[in-house]
């Protein structure tokens, strides 16, 4: 019996990246973004989070990197309840999560390589580490030749690659992408998703919120569908399943 509890616990720590138990989120203005969400994401998974606009996808991702806090329920990251993180520990939670947004969120007055280096600077990495890791990350996203360009000189797809390089430059175990292809044309979107797939193959867990039906249907990965703040479906090798 007690052995069983220990096994369950260790399983949570060793295999589970995210474990949400009856999580609800009501914003201060009363809007119910998430209701009673229970789901588990294991290490190394690639997960699509789909659903119509307003379904609660962004809110769910924000709960994971603690931009927002659940109103009810528990959210365990690596087996640790993130509500228990003290304010001064939150930065260290965030260093374990690379986040990518629809609008890239690059700094316009820094070059490509400075934008990527910024992620290491703010976590006080050494100069040696920065010199080594930044070119590696740019190489991975295929932008070595644009290291000194300014973001404004790049296409949308290239800007998103910079954002991806910045998200992974310190090797986080989890990457969250909130509609990363929302501003991109279909071909570029596929390139971005393939890049995320590459990153996933290297062992990084990827959670991608998206509207892009084609991509979800084409990838045949796990799909979690949200509707009005509830989990409507959770399928391995799933499809988008909406006509919107």
């Amino acid at each position: 019996m007690s052995k069983n509890i220990i096994t369950v616990y260790l399983r949570g720590v060793i295999f589970l990246m995210i474990n949400m138990i009856n999580v609800s989120k009501v914003y201060p203005n009363g809007s119910k973004a998430l209701t009673d969400i229970t789901l588990r994401i294991e290490k190394g998974e690639f997960v699509f989070l789909v659903g119509p606009s307003g379904a609660g996808k962004s809110t769910l991702t924000k709960l994971i990197f603690r931009e927002e806090q659940p109103t009810r329920g528990q959210l365990l990251f690596h087996g640790k309840n993130i509500a228990r993180y003290k304010p001064r520990e939150i930065p260290f939670l965030r260093r374990a999560i690379g986040v990518i947004f629809q609008d890239f969120k690059l700094l316009p007055n820094k070059t490509v390589s400075e934008n990527v280096a910024f992620a290491l600077e703010v976590i006080e990495a050494s100069g040696r580490e920065i010199k080594k890791s930044v070119p590696e990350a740019l190489e991975l996203v295929g932008l070595s030749n644009k290291a000194d360009a300014m973001p404004a000189q790049l296409s949308g797809g290239e800007q998103q690659r910079v954002a991806i390089a910045r998200a992974i430059v310190n090797n986080p175990p989890l990457v969250i992408a909130d509609e990363p292809t929302g501003n991109l044309d279909p071909d570029t979107s596929w390139e971005i998703v393939h890049l995320l797939q590459e990153i996933n193959k290297c062992g990084t867990t990827v959670l991608m919120a998206t509207h892009a039906k084609e991509i979800v249907d084409g990838m045949r990965k796990r799909v979690i569908a949200l509707e009005k703040g509830r989990v409507a479906r959770d399928e391995e090798r799933g499809a988008y399943g909406y006509e919107d």
Binding site: F65, R88, P91, R94, K105, L107, F118, I123
Partner: peptide, 16 residues
Amino acid sequence: RKEIQIMKILGATDWF
């Protein structure tokens, strides 16, 4: 403010 928001997401400490 935009830069500050990004720094927070990247895991900068409050004092940083």
